[in-house]
């Protein structure tokens, strides 16, 4: 994450250490220690009165691998996986257009991507509740076009969660792809066309591999927060949209079962780390060259 390279000279080593000490300290204090604490907590027994019991126990870990959790894991995986895929699919053409646009237009497009952040996240979710309201404009339009039956609700369902996730995280996908596309040498596309590649195959075989680092970062920036989403399923999801984040909240706040909440949180941390390491450790995945 700190971008250090293996082959640095010996004389540089001490300087590197002093330079990275603040960020390392930050990571230890605000990431390593809390995460370890949560992990340790998951091996303690639960106390029905809340809090944590004495001694050690594997009960929480046994519980989180019970079949009733599988539906929630599967739902969390498909909703966040689909959100990531859709964001990449929508973000790439946008980033491509932005990178090829003249400088003035590009500045405007960039501003437009960032503008939604001027409004509070919560307010934007509530705006979706208004848009998808059963008496709302979109619902009436779809109904009038006979796209959906009168009993179908647009709100309170997993698809609504997916829609709002894509909406929320799309800018996070566009920006890194754009950064990669910006340093991509578009002359290569023309070369590919000159050598007989179709427009489509030039994009797929030259452009996409050229920006794969950007695509990887974009995928992470969407997948990681999507896996841990809590607020969006809580507000626009229904009875069948509970994700792991919501379950952790329920365990910690209403069930007074902290060890199980800790086990779930640890599981989520692992789920986040696997794709992170997969992207970061891929050798030679430099953008553009």
């Amino acid at each position: 994450m700190d971008g250090r390279r293996g082959g640095a000279g010996h004389g540089m080593r001490r300087r590197e250490w002093t330079m990275s000490a603040p960020s390392l300290g930050w990571l230890v204090v605000f990431f390593a220690i809390p995460t370890t604490y949560i992990l340790v907590l998951s091996f303690r027994p639960a106390n029905p009165l809340g809090g944590v019991g004495e001694g050690w126990s594997l009960e929480s870990w046994r519980r989180v691998f019970q079949p009733e959790y599988y539906a929630i894991y599967a739902r969390t995986a498909w909703i966040s996986g689909a959100a990531t895929a859709i964001c990449l699919l929508l973000g790439t053409p946008v980033a491509y257009t932005m990178a090829r646009a003249p400088a003035r237009t590009r500045a405007w497009l960039l501003t437009l991507v960032v503008v939604p952040f001027w409004t509070n996240f919560l307010v934007r979710i509530f705006a979706w509740k208004v848009l998808l309201h059963p008496d709302g404009l979109i619902r009436h339009l779809f109904g009038a076009l006979r796209l959906i039956g009168p009993e179908v609700s647009l709100l309170n369902r997993p698809e609504a969660v997916l829609l709002v996730l894509v909406y929320t995280y799309l800018p996070f996908a566009i920006l890194p792809i754009y950064a990669a596309a910006d340093s991509f040498d578009f002359g290569l596309l023309e070369a590919a066309r000159d050598l007989g590649a179709s427009r489509f195959s030039a994009i797929v075989r030259v452009f996409l591999p050229g920006i794969r680092r950007g695509l990887g970062v974009a995928a992470l920036l969407v997948l990681i927060p999507a896996l841990g989403s809590y607020l969006i399923p809580d507000l626009v999801g229904g009875t069948r949209s509970v994700m792991v984040g919501n379950k952790i909240t329920q365990r910690a706040f209403t069930d007074r079962n902290w060890p199980e909440a800790a086990a779930l949180a640890s599981l989520l941390t692992v789920a986040v780390f696997v794709p992170l390491l997969a992207v970061l450790r891929r050798p030679g995945s430099e953008a553009g060259r």
């Binding site: 309201h133 999801g237 009875t239």
Partner: peptide
Amino acid sequence: LARYDSEGYRNSLASAE
């Protein structure tokens, strides 16, 4: 049911959602 809800139901009932 649309959902289990302890906080948002007030607004939703007011707006007839």
